[in-house]
């Protein structure tokens, strides 16, 4: 199974990658809010934002076809929801669609230019409760372990199954599989806890942060702020 579909390009070394995670979290959130507040009639601003995002994509060194591929994966839902848009004119649909796509690309950029461990450190420093950060870190680590376990169970089920069982049987089988997976998760958590205790764990989950807030971050943040403020001024004129 491929393990790198989550943060495949997060280990590159581009101008976007070297930023401190807090900077990126704040800046990208601001940019998404910016995209969301572009008035629908202002085609020019959409263009400006698209241009800015394209520049960042260029700097990020994340391959274009990867970004497009990821965006395409989520496209059906966005299309469907946009089609249900009430003001059925093409413009209403187009605006919703473009907004969603721009935000999606920003999110893809954020997650593919930051290692998850660093993203977590950023969140932690921005005031995310420790228990949630720990949860996310464990989730990231054990996601693949448990998914592999789940896939093995699924294979074993598919091997034994000859014809499709009735709906109810199928559900019963699935719930016992899920139950087994759940019990194994519990047991693994206990083993992991003893491994943590064995290495002196006493409630403090240490954080090591290799990246410091530097002039890069200051520069990036000020450019983004300037950009957003100027687009706002432009809107209100």
């Amino acid at each position: 199974m491929r393990h790198n579909f989550i943060d495949r390009y997060a280990a590159l070394d581009s101008p976007l990658h070297i930023l401190e995670p807090r900077t990126k979290l704040l800046a990208f959130t601001a940019l998404i809010v910016g995209v969301l507040s572009i008035p629908a009639t202002n085609g020019f601003l959409f263009f400006i934002y698209a241009f800015a995002i394209a520049i960042m994509m260029g700097f990020s060194q994340v391959p274009l076809n990867y970004i497009v591929g990821r965006a395409l994966l989520l496209l059906p839902f966005i299309l469907l929801a946009s089609l249900a848009a009430p003001w059925k004119g093409y413009l209403g649909f187009g605006v919703l669609f473009v907004r969603a796509i721009l935000c999606l690309i920003l999110l893809i950029l954020l997650t593919n230019t930051t290692r998850f461990a660093e993203l977590l450190r950023g969140m932690r420093k921005l005031g995310c409760p420790q228990i949630l950060a720990m949860n996310l870190s464990f989730l990231y680590r054990y996601l693949f372990v448990l998914t592999e376990e789940a896939m093995r169970m699924k294979q074993a089920r598919d091997c034994r199954r000859t014809a499709s069982a009735p709906f109810k049987e199928e559900l019963k089988l699935l719930s016992s599989m899920l139950g087994t997976l759940l019990i194994r998760s519990f047991e693994r958590a206990e083993r992991m806890h003893s491994a943590m205790l064995s290495r002196g764990y006493s409630g403090d989950f240490p954080v090591i942060s290799p990246r410091k807030f530097s002039w890069h971050d200051l520069a990036f943040l000020s450019v983004v702020t300037l950009f957003i403020v100027s687009t706002f001024c432009f809107t209100n004129r």
Binding site: M134, N135, L139, L146, S185, A189, M192
Partner: peptide, 13 residues
């Protein structure tokens, strides 16, 4: 804490 993390991964899986 480990149980929460592991169950989160469980839901994901």
């Amino acid at each position: 804490a480990p149980i929460m993390g592991m169950l989160a991964a469980f839901v994901f899986a």
